[in-house]
Amino acid sequence: MAALAASAAAAPPAPVGIGIEGVHKSFGAVHALVDINIGVRAGEFLALIGPSGCGKTTLLKSIAGLIPIDSGRITVGERVVTGPGPECSVVFQDFALMPWATVQHNVEFGLLLRGVPAKERAETARRAIAKVGLGGSFEYAYPSQLSGGMQQRVGLARALAVNPQVLLMDEPFASIDEQTRRVFQDDLLRLWSAERKTVVLVTHSMEEAIYLSDRVVVLSPRPGRVHQVLDVPLPRPRESGDVRATADFARMVDGLWQVLRKLQ
């Protein structure tokens, strides 16, 4: 995994920004999102955090085009989102791996649907698998033969294989143990430093939000509104030093906690 950047053969596409303007979304009588306005800069790492049920995942899936919004506008680059687009890849909380397919075939999946020839598909998938640190003996394993952390790496490799400009991550570390999570977070930061994709991360973890992101958007309890946007001015690269042990990190996590505590 240390050679994340070095193994990238295909040039990463230029990142694009995301515009979220006046977005409303209801499920029947339940208002999930109300007047959401967020601008995500190209190449930015943005975290969405808030109490359970505040609409974080709904907003992420709306950006992905998987959930239609009731009103407002979401743009990814120049494209107004009306459905899933080629710029975005999603990493799902419970991995969403196909249990009947090997790691290699899972990672190839997006390319297969795009009609990429078999040889090119296999090569690209192998590179993506290597990028996330699973190369070698795991290509032909089935998801059930992997640990949770490994399965999520496969999910990330699948998202990366299609070379997206935007990576949308829905609590990707929620089902992973603490040690694996920290290693994975560092790996993700290295990957992001190398490829500079625009990343939107939904998380419940304050430490994770501060450690990974440039800005943290705090959503209020249902109906979800943008309560506050916090800048994270911690220096980068964070993965090579022990940022978590610094006083600034602790102060920022505490600051985020003070904001979230008032929302409980």
């Binding site: 992905a64 899933p84 890849s89 999603v90 196909m98 009947w100 297969l112 649907l113 299609v162």
Partner: peptide
């Protein structure tokens, strides 16, 4: 078939035939 799997496949913009052949067929086998 789980919602996440369906959304994962949809995120890659499949044709209707691809949706059934690449997801529903193996998932329901």
């Amino acid at each position: 078939v789980s919602r996440e799997l369906r959304e994962m496949v949809r995120s890659f913009r499949p044709t209707r035939v691809q949706f059934f052949v690449k997801l529903m067929l193996p998932a329901t086998l």
